[in-house]
């Protein structure tokens, strides 16, 4: 007698846990082989819970040493590499060829490594010491803007997801991400990777579901500081809603993620610039030299 395969239940990822959607709803995604998978149809309350989790995680994540964040992001790459076969299989299950699935997976791993390297460098490159004309030491440095909602690209489902998350968390933000609607499996598996690679719970929260339903809450929530939009249907609505609390909006709809993803300026889009002043004592008429 042949053995019955154990199938995976695809759940959402909030605060480091894998709950089902609180709504109890699902939507079916048919795989290439005809199998039907039931995907959580995330609700506004799931989005709300995810924002709460992201906010709670923000202080801890943003105050980690940049070097520590760097190591954790590199760890994500290691975990992805280790689960290579699973991801390729999942991408193929929704219709990708083996070659394209492999290419996407490898690009995704490399993207993690790329941004892992930026964590402890971007403030050196884009921060500044400002030579003010008074006797003060003055410097500007980037700080994460806070909680970011991301409507990840519909495709490439894995590379798009990874490419939109990495610059955000590399810079110390936490995020709530809406995964690709028709290829959500890799997103859930990616959440498992995050969960096993020392990324604290709540730093990345991944919801599956429908853009039409969730875009409103992703962009109007008053405790969200920025929204990144990677699709092409609701940009204007997002920008309008953003004005409720002066959210920063990034339009990443026209990115070719194979070509445009290695770019530290993406990271800067969810950064604030903080400028600090302090007097410089000058005894006996010696003036400061900054």
């Amino acid at each position: 007698m042949s053995r019955l395969e154990v199938q995976k239940t695809y759940k959402i990822y909030i605060g480091g846990k894998f709950p089902r959607t609180e709504s109890g709803r699902f939507y079916p995604v048919k795989l290439k082989d005809g199998t039907i998978t039931n995907i959580c149809l995330g609700s506004r309350k799931d989005a709300r819970n995810a924002v709460v989790a992201a906010r709670n995680a923000f202080e801890g994540w943003s105050s980690r040493a940049a070097f520590n964040r760097s190591q954790i992001l590199y760890r994500i790459a290691e975990m992805l590499e280790g689960r290579k076969a699973q991801f390729i299989e999942e991408l193929m299950a929704v219709g990708d060829s083996k070659a394209s699935a492999t290419k996407e997976l490898e690009a995704s791993i490399d993207r993690c490594v790329y941004f892992a390297g930026w964590c402890d460098k971007y403030t050196q490159l884009f921060g500044s010491i400002n030579p003010v004309a008074s006797s003060h030491f003055n410097f500007s440095v980037q700080e994460p803007t806070g909680v970011v909602t991301i409507i990840a690209p519909e495709s490439p489902s894995l590379l798009g997801l990874v490419s939109s998350i990495m610059p955000v968390i590399a810079g110390g933000n936490t995020c709530v991400v809406l995964a690709s609607e028709n290829s959500p499996h890799v997103a859930v598996t990616f959440a498992e990777v995050l969960n096993s690679s020392d990324v604290p719970g709540g730093v990345v929260n991944i919801i599956t579901g429908k853009e039409d339903e969730l875009v409103e809450h992703f962009s109007s929530h008053m405790d969200v500081n920025a929204t990144i939009y990677c699709r092409n249907k609701h940009l204007n609505l997002i920008k309008e809603n953003a004005s409720l609390n002066v959210k920063r909006v990034s339009d990443w709809s026209d990115k070719d993620w194979y070509r445009d993803g290695d770019d530290p300026y993406l990271l800067l889009e969810t950064q604030e610039v903080k400028t600090t002043w302090h007097p410089i004592e000058n005894i006996a008429g010696a003036k400061s030299g900054y």
Binding site: N130, P131, V132, A133, H136, E272, V273, T276, H278
Partner: peptide, 17 residues
């Protein structure tokens, strides 16, 4: 906050964002 003044306040300079 975007500007933090430590032991000073309301200072402005063209070089300072």
């Amino acid at each position: 906050a975007g500007i933090v003044w430590a032991n000073t306040f309301n200072k402005f300079d063209p070089t300072s964002p």
